[in-house]
Design a protein around this nucleic acid. Sequence first.
DNA 1: GCCGTTTTCGGCCCGACTGTTTTCAGTCG
Length: 579
Amino acid sequence: MKGKPADKKTIVSTLERIALLLELSGANPFKSRAFQNGARALQSYEGDLAEGFASGELKKIKGVGKGILTEVDTLLDDGTSQALDELEAVVPAGLLEIAKVPGLGPKRVKTLYDKLGIESLGELEYACNENRLVQLDGFGAKTQEKILKGIDAIRRFSGRHLLSDAWATADQLLETIGGVKGVEKIELAGSLRRRRETIKDVDILVAADDPASVHEALTKIDGVEEIIGSGDTKTSVRLDSGINVDLRTVTTTQFPFALHYFTGSKEHNTRMRQRAKDRGLKLNEYGLFPTDSEESVDCADEAAIFEALDLHFVPPELREDMGEFDAAESDDLPPLVAEDDIRGVLHNHSTWSDGAHSVREMAEAARAMGFQYLGLSDHSQSAFYAHGLKEDAILRQHEEIDEVNAAMDDFVVLKGIESDILADGSLDYDDDVLERMDFVVASVHGHFGMSREDQTKRCIRAVQNPYTSILGHPTGRLLLGRDGFDIDLRAVIEAAAEVDCALELNANPHRLDLDWRELRFATRQGARISIGPDAHRTEGLSDLRYGVAVARKGWVQAGDVLNALELDDLRSWLRDRRA
DNA sequence: GCCGTTTTCGGCCCGACTGTTTTCAGTCG
């Protein structure tokens, strides 16, 4: 069936789908991995895939060979993939769902399908209730019970959690378990330490004299709903919030190796191990071993492990095998932005639109956090749902801001607006109103369903408007809720960089938009990033920490961040932008 | 399927835990 050309995202996800289907079809597992690797390699390819294919650049990428290029070719041409079509003809779609049940991998999913004809979650549940799994080789009563629980959990929880929720849970656990007698070291590991935007489970690593008491402490914590598993070195529990916690114990000597290992990512670890192997060493969670030796190389901390493999220290946020090895080899790792670098915040709401606190309350809270300025950007007139401001309300709000400013000599409230970007890409007020603003955040709040082409044009027009200081939450996504709207994001980023319009990294934990994967592209184009809390109450200001965390993950430096500027520098930047 | 300053064939990261076994396969991270 002829279709339209696939974009990069579709091509990457198609290759990943092929990899999973290959596993489920019982093919050579290395073939499946090859497709996974190929998908990853293309994902991190900076250029345009169609151009790269035409010029022969894609052929040079490690992990992309003849077989994968064949699929890419047809996907680029008409969006089809013969490999995918053939696999989908053989493997029922429901098996992909079933593979998400904890404890069920490709082998068992295949067994269930081959022996019992199970090809959907519902059928699986029915078969468990009919006690039909126990008759199969390798299955037993406990497995059946576990699968039923897994199906239930999938339905109750998406299985993933916001960075903010997982982080808050982890902070509490670190305090409680860190207080257990005999605990020498305790650290967060896993995707939470890497600051991924959503988290599957909280990983905690402990070095302790008496591991058993540490494991016991976790199982006794308030809010433990189920103990999933418990051994000498690992305990897993599910909290009533639905968050899973994995606790591992090691010795003090092993700690740095285990911390690195359990921090991941899996892809980063694979590269590290290969790198160790290339140097005649074996790396695992217990140490770094020369060939034929039981004695590990001595490493006091993670930095020493990197050093032993001729690398500079890679901050956890960057460990995604997305360029950190090249940078760590050549000492090109950037100094990442830190919370201390932030001088103020530029996207906030007050009671004038849909916020919960007044101008003065927001200002005092921001000042107490050590900021120099607060940019107030209430909603614009088209945003009826959020009590957007008409022109006369803007005038009155500005009077109130002047009063608040007059009462503070070491802090400034900047006059801004979060202007809806209308369907045609224009802003929500006439120029003479925008002229009165210190800054403008322009955001899409409606017409999400426009075509990719029109949406792209719309946002490019908005960033090219000299009154637009910042493009707000550029994709409109809500994590675990809805995908961003269809848009050629890179084209918008390039357009913004061209005219020096800043891009927002919205720090609200539900958004974290711009995505960290795009931040590096944006800063390379020279675009400024505004880390905005989008606070609707004073407490919301502290969401900034999630924004900074994700900015770090996107290789952002203080010099890239608009609101790391001192007030005077920010003001002149805003003036220049408009000029 | 991909890769190769020992290779065009024969590898492809490694270990813990679980549940099923009676020495191990499958799953997970």
